[in-house]
Design a protein around this nucleic acid. Sequence first.
DNA 1: TTGTAAGCGTTATCAA
DNA 2: TTGATAACGCTTACAA
Lengths: 337, 337
Amino acid sequence: MIKTTIDDIAAELGLSKSTVSRAISGKGRISEATRQRVQQCIEQYNYTPSAVARGLAQKRTFNIGVVCPIDYEIFDLQYFHRCLHGISDVASLGGYDILISMIGDRDISNLRRVIENHKADGIILTRTLFDDAAAAYLKQSGLPVVVIGSSPDKDLVQVDNDHLNGCCELTSVLIAKGCRKIALIGGDNTHTVTAVRRRGFELAFEQMGLPLDPSLIYMDTQDERAVGAALEDIVRKKADCVICMDEKLTSYAVTECRHLKIRIPADIKMASFYNSAFLETTTPAITALDIDDRKLGAAAARHLLTMIEGQPSSGELLRSYQVILRESTTLPSAAGR
Amino acid sequence: MIKTTIDDIAAELGLSKSTVSRAISGKGRISEATRQRVQQCIEQYNYTPSAVARGLAQKRTFNIGVVCPIDYEIFDLQYFHRCLHGISDVASLGGYDILISMIGDRDISNLRRVIENHKADGIILTRTLFDDAAAAYLKQSGLPVVVIGSSPDKDLVQVDNDHLNGCCELTSVLIAKGCRKIALIGGDNTHTVTAVRRRGFELAFEQMGLPLDPSLIYMDTQDERAVGAALEDIVRKKADCVICMDEKLTSYAVTECRHLKIRIPADIKMASFYNSAFLETTTPAITALDIDDRKLGAAAARHLLTMIEGQPSSGELLRSYQVILRESTTLPSAAGR
DNA sequence: TTGTAAGCGTTATCAA
DNA sequence: TTGATAACGCTTACAA
């Protein structure tokens, strides 16, 4: 089963291969008659052009690279998968495929190989860290790069959800519901989004002109134990609400409340700055900020393709979030159920 | 920043590009002296060969395609991610990169594009369905294909964990612990693994020479409601143990038990045919069959690379599973905690 | 509108 | 051991 090439088609039709090429790509003037003939012959012979050859001729690969951190946990994976979905939608529209590079925190060899071998026309980073080895490497590579999330490096094109205003909005809603002593449990300090979420939280208090008790902010609480300790402290301080920065922390907090016999929302209200399926099925369901990760991925891919075409891009801040209110923050009066 | 090519290196060194090519690839006889000179020059100029050009010359892409079902749920994603990790390990050793095709149940256009444009040298399928559109398409494509899991199509090279014996072993352990009325809750009937797991369950009874009550087998219970209904039925029939086929079903079952005030393991024991981090943190921790997905991915990639090199492969059945006993199946006598 | 021919950056064949 | 030279399959000036 030897592959048919553009020469075969040209020979069969008695045309030159440049004519066939033009008929396929639609570039350059071509009579409608021959274009039809070519089209028909192509289908008959089941001819499909080689992307490799085309790539060599056009100095392109028609691949976009997506970096997948090897240390992604179960919760991150859903985010990643949805981003990928959006990226894939846009990429395939442009005739691009997706090349995945799995990288560790320090070992970015898979990414290097892709860049060095010129196997992708651009790269998307689905998260950024402070002191990000991948981001630093990509920057000096000169290839078009889009990061999803906010990178400390403002030279990189960024596509992000407006976490600042989203978190501010959710916090404001809780304040409006009467919460005054709101605690915040924050995760990984090396992730840039952590800082933004904290800022959004603080912003809500500033906008409402309310005092904020800094001792109610718990940062870098990564594991179950840390969350448990924070929660005990929070209860001791008689906070009326606790917000966790992501669904992992929230799940820890819910479990911990169960252990400590703290009732949600009767004893304390709870909310999450990142929604997930888990939060709607748990008892009680948890109020959360919902973000459309697929849109985020699609936007990133769109910007990357633009840059690959040679046009500049300045990134984008998407407003595709919404506050979803659930039982965990119902008012005391309505907490009869 | 114009890319340096093999010609530049050749010119700089006063060699022909074929010599340089040989020095790099190591193929053909070359004096150690020139090989060193070339090596040094390459590093100095920071030259890296174009994979596209090499691909065209060798009629290869150095990509392996991995199919990612778009409908993967949160639980599947962890399995997929670990497979991918193993695939990536082996692929990068062979100088290959990973091309991801996201496909729907029926819409395999992203996969088709990869195949038609000849963008991958082989494909790995991480799951198979009965009546699998992707598998059928790949088969007729003629490209090397490895499926992870057991496909009904025996023409496809399969790499799988030995679910049959694994599930049989877990079931046997439970029987040995004194369980007699063991119920089985099974998931998606369109997934081939579902049938294998059921068979392993039955096998344990046959091997022990014990009767099996078919009415305790609940198949195709996909959602929470179905699991809940099954569980109520199971309790009514006074089963002493229930095995769920995967961690999603198990999580549903645990939640349902909580609602129904059924205590695990005091009232009923519980186990899962697929382990996950979730099962060790839940209360109580759930006995499960642990499978090394990363090894599975690595094995699949190894077989695929072999096939790409032109050698035949007959697949592999890995025994990398282990039964992990946890609280959910402790004996009544020890259930004091 | 179509054809010719020169790339694109490698590898492979065959001489030297 | 090295060097010409012809592929590999496609695109794209430039010519006809």
